[in-house]
Amino acid sequence: MTAYEPDWCATPADVIKAGEEIKTKRIKKSVDRTLRWLDDCLAASPAPVIAPVVGFNNVEERVRSASETAKREQVAGFVLNAFELEGDVRTECIRTSIEQLPANKPRLAYGYSTPESILDGITQGIDLFDGSYAYKMTERGRAITFKFGDSMSPPKDEEKPEKSLNLWDTRLAQSFDAIDSSCGCYTCTTPHTKAYIHHLLNAHEMLGPLLIMMHNVYQLEHFMGAVRNSIDNKTFDADKEAFMAKHNHGKEGSGSEGHQDEIDFESLGSPVKKNRVL
């Protein structure tokens, strides 16, 4: 930390993995160990510390972890891990933790990455989120297309659109428009067309995912900016309701399925791609 000089750092947490029966004794040990590591790091870290709040699915231990962590005045903010929990249990545990935390210090949540979960997290009182959604969509060959607040257009028909565009879709092979004509990212303003990016994906060219990633990061940043404006204008609840009503919230599949590289593993030296007939 002394060498890197970060703006802030998060201390280690003893996070319990879901999938098996966890006893209360194990959860208590997790809280004790995380607090002990926090004290060690507070005494040594040259950077502001954001402290983890744990407790798995045990309400009492969630309260203890959050309240004990909040007592450390040196702590600059809090990390709430939501990877190990799902559904109503996650919502209840995060709410229980937040109730014990001061309102004047930021709360970062890992595991709230989709637009739906980000909006839900904001409602609960979370301030910061991870940006992994942009990367996950890029991996699937999908470009973010959803808007929020004033920039969101009203639905045109009863069919709810998906939140992203599948650029593996063969119907885009003759589509010579940008992904989003209103987008200011490099990909859309150059512009690189849907057909060209579709070709890059099919040819397994590195440029394809790079162009999608630039677009997705730009769009996610603007989504968060629109959310902040909505909160400032006191229209967040109505904008959230409109967003949820407009879009299809099913899981966005991977467009790359069925398009994996065909590798000749019997060739000498480096594996060679076989010619593809599309």
Rank of each mutant, 00 (worst) to 15 (best):
K23E: 10
C41F: 07
K28V: 06
E21Y: 13
C9H: 00
A43T: 02
D7C: 02
P6K: 02
A43K: 14
I22K: 06
A43Y: 03
A10H: 01
K25S: 15
W8I: 05
A44G: 00
K17F: 05
T34C: 07
K25V: 11
C9S: 10
T11G: 02
P6D: 00
D14F: 11
I27L: 03
D14A: 15
E5W: 01
K25M: 09
K29V: 07
C9R: 02
A47F: 00
V15T: 13
L35H: 14
L38A: 01
V15Y: 02
A18H: 03
P48N: 08
A43W: 01
I16P: 06
K25Q: 15
I22R: 11
P46W: 08
R33S: 10
E5N: 12
I50D: 03
T24S: 13
V15L: 08
R36N: 12
A47R: 09
P46S: 12
K23P: 00
T24L: 14
T11M: 03
G19L: 07
K25D: 14
V49W: 04
F56P: 04
A18G: 11
I22S: 04
V15I: 15
D39N: 08
N57L: 02
R26K: 13
W37R: 13
L38H: 01
K29E: 08
L42R: 04
P52E: 05
E20L: 09
R26Q: 15
V54C: 07
V31F: 04
T34M: 12
S45P: 01
T11C: 08
P46E: 06
V49P: 09
K28A: 08
R26P: 00
E21K: 13
S45Q: 05
G55A: 11
V31S: 06
W37Y: 12
K29H: 09
V31W: 06
P12T: 13
W8V: 09
K29R: 14
A44H: 04
T11A: 10
G55D: 06
A18L: 03
F56V: 00
G19R: 10
N57C: 09
R36I: 02
I16E: 01
L42T: 02
S30M: 03
S30Y: 04
A44N: 01
P46C: 12
L38K: 03
W37D: 14
K17N: 08
W37H: 07
I27P: 08
I50Q: 04
G55K: 10
K28T: 06
D32G: 01
P52L: 07
K17C: 10
